[in-house]
Amino acid sequence: MIDFLDAIRFDMIWNYKELFIRGLWITLSLTAVGYVGGIILGLFLGIGKLSKIKWIYYPAKYYVDFFRGTPLLVQILLIHLAVIPSIFGHSLGYFVSGATALMLNCAAYNAEIIRAGIQSIEKGQMEAARSLGMPQGEAMRFIILPQAFRRMIPPLGNELIALLKDSSLVTVIAANDLLYAGKVVAGAYARFWEPYITVAILYLLLTWVFTKVIAYVERRYSNSYIPSQRRRIFTFGRASAGG
């Protein structure tokens, strides 16, 4: 064991630290863009899947079925090598392809979460809103979604962590993400322990931080609507945005 530790050369990681920092940055950016886009698109898809109108329901349903029913890796390759070049005539770079694929994929999973969240709100809430003369859209926006989002926090949090890890798949299109940094170092030194352990530890660190943040948000939002608690949530929101 001592021999083994002696043999480990973390200096080679240090030499490539810029690559890892850049990788972290790319991974976080891809996750952020994919997640935010995935929530917005997922909201429309989730509501679409609740629609009684066939030409809204079926496209939403088939979209979700496709992106949940095929591997993300295949989606990334399809988008990078086929879809984007066909539309634009050339590649738009790994970031656009990667973020698009992650967003489209994440949206499909979020759509199911959002649909279930909306459905979990008692029917009486929508009925009360409609009985006051609110159109469907307003009732959704002001009455249903604010309640439903609280219930969506835990599964949407899981989705964020899943997306962070799944973002490593963009390595196949030579995105300079965290895993790619490990691959480059592994290639340069023909050693595998150090770079991949480093990559693993960095992912673990990220998921650990995300888990903590999600748990915090979850705790704050889970119990009660009473404002003394809500004020603390906002304080937390500003603090985290500033720091």
Partner: peptide
């Protein structure tokens, strides 16, 4: 047309 429900259906948020 106002309506009052058995389960109140106030908006809890």
């Amino acid at each position: 047309v106002g309506m009052v429900f058995q389960q109140f259906n106030l908006f809890p948020h």
